[in-house]
Simulated scan of single mutants.
Amino acid sequence: MHLQQLKRTLTYFKHTLNFGLPLKRPCHLCLQAYSDADWGGNLDDRTSTSTYVIFLGGNPVSWMSKRQCTVARSSTEAEYRSVANTTAEVMWLSNLLQELGISRSVPHLYCDNIEATYLCSNPVFHSRMKHIALDYHFVRQLVQQGQLLISHISTKDQLADGLTKPLGRCRFTQLRDKLGVAYGNPILRGRNR
Protein backbone atom coordinates (compact mmCIF):
# COMPACT_ATOMS: atom_id res chain seq x y z
CA MET A 1 0.00 0.00 0.00
CA HIS A 2 2.81 2.44 0.87
CA LEU A 3 4.60 1.65 -2.38
CA GLN A 4 1.42 2.44 -4.37
CA GLN A 5 1.07 5.77 -2.55
CA LEU A 6 4.71 6.59 -3.26
CA LYS A 7 4.24 5.82 -6.97
CA ARG A 8 1.16 8.05 -7.12
CA THR A 9 3.05 10.88 -5.41
CA LEU A 10 6.05 10.60 -7.74
CA THR A 11 3.75 10.51 -10.78
CA TYR A 12 2.02 13.67 -9.54
CA PHE A 13 5.38 15.41 -9.07
CA LYS A 14 6.49 14.37 -12.55
CA HIS A 15 3.41 15.97 -14.15
CA THR A 16 3.46 19.16 -12.05
CA LEU A 17 7.12 20.20 -12.18
CA ASN A 18 6.20 23.64 -13.54
CA PHE A 19 3.65 24.40 -10.81
CA GLY A 20 4.46 26.95 -8.14
CA LEU A 21 3.14 29.66 -5.83
CA PRO A 22 2.99 32.98 -7.66
CA LEU A 23 2.95 35.87 -5.19
CA LYS A 24 0.40 38.66 -5.63
CA ARG A 25 0.67 42.22 -4.42
CA PRO A 26 -1.37 42.20 -1.20
CA CYS A 27 -4.14 44.72 -0.60
CA HIS A 28 -3.89 44.10 3.17
CA LEU A 29 -1.40 42.51 5.55
CA CYS A 30 -3.76 40.36 7.58
CA LEU A 31 -2.66 36.95 8.82
CA GLN A 32 -5.26 34.26 8.10
CA ALA A 33 -4.69 30.67 9.15
CA TYR A 34 -6.54 27.46 8.31
CA SER A 35 -6.08 24.61 10.78
CA ASP A 36 -7.23 21.04 10.27
CA ALA A 37 -6.63 17.52 11.58
CA ASP A 38 -7.76 14.06 10.71
CA TRP A 39 -8.69 11.81 13.60
CA GLY A 40 -6.72 8.59 13.84
CA GLY A 41 -5.92 8.69 10.14
CA ASN A 42 -2.64 6.82 10.44
CA LEU A 43 -3.66 3.17 10.24
CA ASP A 44 -0.35 1.94 11.70
CA ASP A 45 -0.63 3.59 15.14
CA ARG A 46 -3.93 5.56 14.98
CA THR A 47 -2.27 8.93 15.48
CA SER A 48 -3.78 12.00 13.83
CA THR A 49 -2.24 14.42 11.37
CA SER A 50 -2.18 18.16 12.14
CA THR A 51 -2.04 20.61 9.27
CA TYR A 52 -2.15 24.33 8.74
CA VAL A 53 -1.82 26.90 5.98
CA ILE A 54 -1.12 30.53 6.90
CA PHE A 55 -1.71 33.41 4.50
CA LEU A 56 -0.26 36.92 4.71
CA GLY A 57 -2.12 39.33 2.48
CA GLY A 58 -3.68 36.48 0.51
CA ASN A 59 -0.36 34.73 -0.17
CA PRO A 60 0.51 31.45 1.55
CA VAL A 61 3.63 32.01 3.66
CA SER A 62 3.70 29.00 5.98
CA TRP A 63 2.25 25.49 5.89
CA MET A 64 2.77 22.23 7.70
CA SER A 65 1.52 18.67 7.76
CA LYS A 66 2.79 16.63 10.69
CA ARG A 67 1.75 13.54 12.57
CA GLN A 68 0.73 14.17 16.18
CA CYS A 69 2.90 12.54 18.85
CA THR A 70 0.09 10.95 20.83
CA VAL A 71 -3.22 9.32 20.01
CA ALA A 72 -6.19 11.67 20.32
CA ARG A 73 -9.20 10.33 22.19
CA SER A 74 -11.65 12.40 20.14
CA SER A 75 -11.80 14.40 16.92
CA THR A 76 -12.13 17.54 19.05
CA GLU A 77 -8.86 16.76 20.80
CA ALA A 78 -7.08 16.16 17.48
CA GLU A 79 -8.43 19.43 16.08
CA TYR A 80 -7.60 21.35 19.26
CA ARG A 81 -3.99 20.15 19.15
CA SER A 82 -3.81 21.29 15.54
CA VAL A 83 -5.24 24.69 16.50
CA ALA A 84 -2.59 25.00 19.23
CA ASN A 85 0.24 24.24 16.78
CA THR A 86 -1.22 26.70 14.28
CA THR A 87 -1.57 29.36 16.96
CA ALA A 88 2.10 29.02 17.91
CA GLU A 89 3.14 29.59 14.28
CA VAL A 90 0.68 32.48 13.82
CA MET A 91 1.97 34.23 16.95
CA TRP A 92 5.58 33.76 15.81
CA LEU A 93 4.77 35.30 12.41
CA SER A 94 2.79 38.07 14.10
CA ASN A 95 5.72 38.93 16.37
CA LEU A 96 8.10 38.83 13.39
CA LEU A 97 5.92 41.32 11.51
CA GLN A 98 5.80 43.55 14.59
CA GLU A 99 9.61 43.47 14.91
CA LEU A 100 9.88 44.44 11.24
CA GLY A 101 7.65 47.43 11.92
CA ILE A 102 4.76 46.18 9.81
CA SER A 103 1.40 47.17 11.23
CA ARG A 104 -1.01 44.30 11.42
CA SER A 105 -4.51 43.46 12.51
CA VAL A 106 -5.54 40.65 14.84
CA PRO A 107 -4.77 37.28 13.18
CA HIS A 108 -7.76 35.15 12.22
CA LEU A 109 -7.69 31.37 12.51
CA TYR A 110 -10.29 29.11 10.86
CA CYS A 111 -11.13 25.62 12.15
CA ASP A 112 -13.78 23.24 10.79
CA ASN A 113 -14.53 21.57 14.15
CA ILE A 114 -17.21 23.44 16.10
CA GLU A 115 -16.31 21.90 19.47
CA ALA A 116 -12.62 22.83 19.12
CA THR A 117 -13.66 26.37 18.19
CA TYR A 118 -15.82 26.59 21.33
CA LEU A 119 -13.02 25.22 23.54
CA CYS A 120 -10.74 28.03 22.35
CA SER A 121 -13.01 30.77 23.65
CA ASN A 122 -14.92 29.12 26.50
CA PRO A 123 -13.30 29.95 29.87
CA VAL A 124 -15.04 27.00 31.56
CA PHE A 125 -12.77 23.97 31.72
CA HIS A 126 -14.66 20.76 30.99
CA SER A 127 -13.74 17.69 33.02
CA ARG A 128 -13.96 15.56 29.86
CA MET A 129 -11.04 17.52 28.38
CA LYS A 130 -8.63 17.28 31.36
CA HIS A 131 -6.48 14.76 29.51
CA ILE A 132 -5.38 17.45 27.03
CA ALA A 133 -2.01 18.80 28.10
CA LEU A 134 -2.08 22.25 29.71
CA ASP A 135 0.27 23.78 27.17
CA TYR A 136 -2.51 23.71 24.58
CA HIS A 137 -4.60 26.09 26.67
CA PHE A 138 -2.51 29.08 25.73
CA VAL A 139 -4.83 29.35 22.71
CA ARG A 140 -7.73 30.15 25.01
CA GLN A 141 -5.67 32.82 26.79
CA LEU A 142 -4.78 34.55 23.50
CA VAL A 143 -8.43 34.53 22.42
CA GLN A 144 -9.52 36.01 25.75
CA GLN A 145 -6.86 38.74 25.48
CA GLY A 146 -8.08 39.65 21.99
CA GLN A 147 -4.79 38.71 20.31
CA LEU A 148 -6.37 35.99 18.16
CA LEU A 149 -9.75 35.42 16.52
CA ILE A 150 -10.95 31.87 15.94
CA SER A 151 -13.92 31.11 13.72
CA HIS A 152 -15.65 28.00 12.51
CA ILE A 153 -15.41 27.31 8.79
CA SER A 154 -17.24 24.77 6.68
CA THR A 155 -15.25 21.67 5.73
CA LYS A 156 -15.76 22.48 2.05
CA ASP A 157 -14.00 25.84 2.60
CA GLN A 158 -11.19 24.37 4.72
CA LEU A 159 -8.01 25.04 2.72
CA ALA A 160 -5.82 22.82 4.93
CA ASP A 161 -7.97 19.76 4.20
CA GLY A 162 -5.77 18.67 1.32
CA LEU A 163 -2.80 18.25 3.66
CA THR A 164 -4.50 15.81 6.04
CA LYS A 165 -5.68 12.95 3.86
CA PRO A 166 -5.88 11.66 0.31
CA LEU A 167 -8.63 13.35 -1.69
CA GLY A 168 -10.34 12.73 -4.99
CA ARG A 169 -8.91 14.48 -8.04
CA CYS A 170 -11.70 17.07 -8.28
CA ARG A 171 -11.52 18.11 -4.59
CA PHE A 172 -7.71 18.10 -4.59
CA THR A 173 -7.54 20.29 -7.71
CA GLN A 174 -10.11 22.67 -6.24
CA LEU A 175 -8.10 23.07 -3.00
CA ARG A 176 -4.82 23.38 -4.88
CA ASP A 177 -6.26 26.22 -6.95
CA LYS A 178 -7.63 27.98 -3.85
CA LEU A 179 -4.18 27.82 -2.26
CA GLY A 180 -2.81 29.69 -5.26
CA VAL A 181 -0.73 26.87 -6.74
CA ALA A 182 -0.65 27.50 -10.48
CA TYR A 183 1.21 26.58 -13.63
CA GLY A 184 4.29 28.77 -13.80
CA ASN A 185 6.86 29.78 -16.32
CA PRO A 186 9.51 27.04 -16.48
CA ILE A 187 12.21 29.63 -17.24
CA LEU A 188 12.19 30.55 -13.54
CA ARG A 189 13.40 27.06 -12.63
CA GLY A 190 16.59 27.37 -14.63
CA ARG A 191 17.72 25.19 -17.47
CA ASN A 192 17.74 21.41 -17.39
CA ARG A 193 20.66 19.85 -19.20
Rank of each mutant, 00 (worst) to 15 (best):
A182V: 13
L175H: 14
K156M: 06
Q141F: 08
G180I: 09
K165R: 15
G162A: 14
F138Q: 05
D161M: 05
L175D: 12
F172H: 15
T173H: 10
R176Y: 08
V143C: 11
L149I: 00
F172Y: 14
I132N: 02
I150C: 00
F138S: 05
L179I: 14
Y183S: 15
C170W: 06
K156S: 13
A182L: 15
R169F: 04
Q141K: 13
L167Y: 05
F138C: 02
D177Y: 07
V143G: 00
F138T: 06
V139Y: 00
F172D: 09
S151Q: 12
G180Q: 07
Y183H: 15
L175R: 11
H131S: 10
H131R: 06
T164F: 08
I132H: 06
A133D: 11
L159S: 09
Q174F: 14
I153R: 04
T164M: 10
L159T: 14
Q158Y: 09
D157T: 02
G184W: 03
S151E: 10
A133N: 07
H131F: 03
T173Q: 12
L142D: 02
G146K: 02
Q147A: 12
Q141Y: 06
L134T: 15
F172W: 09
L167T: 07
V139Q: 00
Y136T: 07
G168R: 04
L148A: 00
H131N: 12
R176P: 13
L148W: 01
T155H: 01
T173V: 06
G180W: 03
Y183L: 15
H131Y: 07
K165I: 10
T155D: 00
V143F: 02
Q145M: 13
S151M: 00
L179K: 09
R169M: 01
K165E: 13
T164R: 06
L142W: 02
K156H: 14
L167M: 12
V139F: 00
R171S: 09
T173N: 13
L142S: 05
I132F: 08
G180R: 04
Y136N: 08
L179C: 14
T155R: 04
F172M: 08
V139A: 00
T164K: 08
L179W: 13
L175P: 11
T164H: 09
H137S: 03
S151T: 06
G146Y: 04
H131P: 07
L142R: 10
I153E: 06
G180F: 08
V139R: 00
H152I: 05
L134M: 09
C170N: 12
G162R: 01
Q144E: 13
D161Y: 14
Y183D: 13
I153N: 07
A182C: 15
